[in-house]
Simulated assay, not measured.
Amino acid sequence: MPAHSQFIPLNIAVLTVSDTRDEETDTSGRFLCQAIEQAGHHVYEKAIVKDDKYQLRAIVSNWIVSDQVQVVVCTGGTGFTERDSTPEAIACLFDKQVDGFGELFRHISYQEIGTSTVQSRAIAGMANGTLICCLPGSTGACKTAWNGILREQLDSTHRPCNFVVHLTTAHAKACDSRG
């Protein structure tokens, strides 16, 4: 789908998945909120949740049923420790997986951290017209994903295409059908 000629601000929810971080120590979530606002979007809500797939799934499910949220960005829980469960918690919610997201993230990340990028299970998908992106928990990984992928793909003026067309169309249809 073609890009828009005007910038369309989106409502983006940010979720930090961590057993140890709080608002004071959540540098990844703080970076994402700042980057979102600097890009001209709105932080709809920010939350921190323990690395529990059911709590994580519940929060994200509430956001994807909201007509107010077009994008959910999760940071954390994508590694290989026993508690890392973000991909398992979220992938089952996807209507469509964005296969290229994880591939591109690892490609860009390889330039920065070499083969260690194979330990990233970054994923993205669409659910109920909402884009959900699951990033590693490090602030560096969040910067890589935002600067290398999300900033352009959430910009309605980015050509030749971006996700905004899909997000705004889906939410407009949902609002119209509810009347």
Rank of each mutant, 00 (worst) to 15 (best):
M1N: 14
I12Q: 04
I12F: 05
T16K: 01
D19W: 11
D19Q: 08
T20G: 15
E24D: 04
G29H: 04
C33I: 11
A35D: 02
Q38T: 11
Q38P: 11
A39V: 06
A39R: 04
H41N: 06
H42A: 00
V43R: 07
V43D: 07
Y44D: 05
K50Q: 12
Y54V: 15
Q55P: 13
L56W: 08
L56P: 13
R57N: 10
I59P: 02
N62Q: 13
W63A: 03
I64T: 05
V65G: 09
V65T: 13
V65Y: 12
Q68P: 12
Q68E: 15
V71I: 09
V73A: 08
C74T: 15
T75C: 14
T78E: 03
E82Q: 09
R83I: 00
P87V: 11
E88H: 01
A91D: 07
C92S: 14
L93M: 11
D99A: 06
D99Y: 13
D99Q: 14
G100A: 10
G100H: 10
E103A: 09
R106P: 01
Y110K: 13
Q111H: 15
Q111K: 13
E112Y: 15
T115V: 05
T115H: 11
T117A: 02
A122C: 07
A122L: 02
A124C: 10
N128F: 12
C134M: 09
L135M: 07
G140K: 11
A141I: 10
T144W: 05
T144Q: 11
A145S: 04
I149W: 03
E152N: 15
L154G: 02
D155W: 05
S156L: 05
H158P: 08
N162I: 00
F163R: 03
V165N: 14
G179E: 13
